[in-house]
Design a protein around this nucleic acid. Structure first.
Lengths: 170, 170
DNA sequence: CCAGGTGGTCTGTTCATCGAACTATCGGTA
DNA sequence: TACCGATAGTTCGATGAACAGACCACCTGG
């Protein structure tokens, strides 16, 4: 395992997790995968990441079983069941970032499809359950800044969109 | 801000969070702070981290308002209110790591003090609430490996211990 | 079968991390 | 109060990872 990614001497599940998702860019790639990004060039356009690093990260995520890569035609990367278990982590980190940087003005809003909005803890304000990512719809919130980016993925994400559903980019 | 830590062009709360806690070692340092580690040498002994990097990270966390550094006597680092908001993230990541690497054998167990054990989602199995870190007790679970480490912090953590309470290391 | 878009790899430079040696400060003891 | 060990760092050279940009191979539509 390359330097910078392992915490071999730690007897701790957090360390085990960080060996998989703790590298620079990895969680942002997974966030995009939840948002429906599927293709190499779309990840690259949305993240401003070097192709070499993106390639390394995608390969690593496939090797660790968090993404699958389609083998026919142009490759697409899709989150696995295992990756879906990370949704609470991504949601909690996003909420924390919202509270810290722009209190009261979330950059994105999440909704339990056909039910109610999500609380900061990730539970539906209407039914009280914590919906699976596939039952969550994301839309821009009052803290979002539509002038910051103009890549096709950012544009597509200005419309409400159900998580995990492949994004119509073009 | 040094390169490797910023995602300036991302309009995303997750990116803002990762700029603060996304670097190598940072989340493990915060985990230790939740576990009651307070002193430079104890962080270092428990994490096997170079002193230079530990120094840089602690300074950064103080600058970002996640830790306070006592100014009288030997320095101690204590998590701030802002840092406490990260507990759900750390807990969720730990649970995910447990499930992935040793299903059914968690390395640590968490309990709502005076009430019940915590579910994988972080809520108390007895009262249903999600307790604040100060009301949670941690103890080794069936998946822990007591032979892996012998530093004073690891030894102290073999006893049940309430989060945020300074660890009696010596 | 050709052109352009897609999905990479390769390269030189810059930056972060590492281990080890060195320095400064604290606090207890004589 | 003057020492001395423990604590808390800083500095240094070597190694490895990230970056931007050039380059190349493959797929797909015309």
């Amino acid at each position: 395992m390359p330097l910078g990614t392992d915490y071999a001497r730690q007897d701790c599940s957090l360390a085990r997790s960080l060996e998989v998702v703790g590298e620079r860019w990895t969680l942002l790639i997974l966030r995009d995968a939840f948002f429906g990004v599927r293709r190499f060039s779309d990840f690259q356009a949305h993240l401003d990441i070097s192709k070499a690093v993106l390639s390394t990260r995608l390969d690593g995520l496939v090797a660790d079983g968090l993404l699958t890569r389609t083998s026919t035609g142009h490759p697409e990367y899709e989150p696995t069941e295992d990756a879906l278990g990370l949704w609470p982590v991504l949601y909690a980190l996003g909420q924390w970032g919202d509270r810290r940087t722009t209190p009261g003005l979330p950059r994105r809003l999440y909704r339990h499809v056909g039910c109610g909005d999500l609380s900061p803890a990730g539970s539906c304000l209407s039914c009280g359950r914590s919906p699976a990512p596939g039952d969550i719809e994301v839309r821009p919130g009052p803290g979002s800044d539509p002038t910051r980016r103009d890549d096709p993925v950012s544009v597509a994400l200005r419309e409400p969109h159900r998580l995990l559903e492949p994004l119509a980019v073009r």
